[in-house]
Simulated scan of single mutants.
Amino acid sequence: MQAQAIADGQAPLLSAEVVSKVLSQNNFNSTFLRNASISAHSSKSSSAGLVVLHEHLEELKKKTEAIEEALDRIARQYDELKKQQEESHLILQKILHVTTPGISS
């Protein structure tokens, strides 16, 4: 559909408009639209609903990125703490070998 609009010399359609047209042509009471709580009574309401869905998707993407960054930071902190724990363990082992008579290295 988008290719036709461009070929006819018209302005390209927004993705939401293309999806809205396809959904309204295929099934006026689309399951997708009902599940997404979008009224399919008009092309405008479908387009507006899809724009809202697109905005919601973008918001979720931003939140996901923030969560992934936090998880990466936590993983780096965990690795650093694990490394420090291993170093502490080695130091404690050396102390025990020095202070405990009869243990040879």
Rank of each mutant, 00 (worst) to 15 (best):
L23Q: 03
L23P: 01
L23A: 01
L23G: 01
S24E: 04
S24P: 01
Q25E: 10
Q25I: 04
N26F: 04
N26C: 12
N26Q: 13
N27C: 11
F28M: 13
F28T: 15
N29T: 07
N29I: 00
S30E: 04
S30H: 03
T31I: 06
T31C: 05
F32E: 05
F32Y: 09
F32N: 01
L33M: 00
L33Y: 00
R34V: 09
R34G: 00
R34M: 08
N35K: 07
N35S: 04
A36M: 09
A36Q: 13
S37V: 10
I38P: 01
A40V: 03
A40Q: 05
H41C: 08
H41K: 10
S42D: 03
S42K: 00
S43E: 15
S43F: 11
S43Y: 01
K44M: 11
S45V: 13
S46T: 12
S46A: 12
S46D: 08
S47I: 15
A48L: 11
G49Q: 00
G49Y: 00
L50S: 00
L50M: 00
L50P: 00
V51H: 02
V51P: 00
V51S: 02
V52P: 01
L53F: 02
L53D: 01
H54V: 10
H54F: 10
H54S: 14
E55T: 10
E55P: 06
L60F: 00
L60M: 10
K61M: 07
K62C: 14
K63R: 08
K63G: 02
K63I: 04
T64L: 12
T64W: 03
E65K: 08
A66R: 04
A66T: 12
I67A: 08
I67S: 05
I67F: 08
E68C: 02
E68Y: 03
E68M: 02
E69F: 10
E69Q: 15
A70T: 11
A70W: 04
L71G: 11
L71A: 11
L71C: 08
D72C: 10
D72E: 09
D72Y: 06
D72Q: 11
R73A: 13
R73M: 10
I74R: 10
I74K: 06
A75F: 04
A75W: 02
Q77L: 12
Q77R: 08
Q77E: 14
D79I: 05
E80W: 03
L81I: 06
K82Y: 05
K82N: 14
K82C: 14
K83R: 07
K83L: 08
Q84T: 06
Q85M: 09
Q85A: 13
E86L: 15
E87R: 02
E87M: 08
E87K: 07
E87G: 08
S88D: 13
H89D: 12
L90Y: 13
I91M: 14
L92S: 14
L92T: 10
L92N: 09
L92R: 03
K94A: 15
I95S: 05
H97M: 14
H97V: 09
H97K: 13
V98P: 04
V98K: 11
T99K: 06
T99N: 09
T100H: 08
T100V: 06
T100P: 07
P101T: 05
P101V: 07
G102W: 13
G102Y: 11
I103Q: 02
I103P: 01
I103M: 03
I103F: 05
S104P: 04
S104E: 15
S105Y: 10
S105N: 15
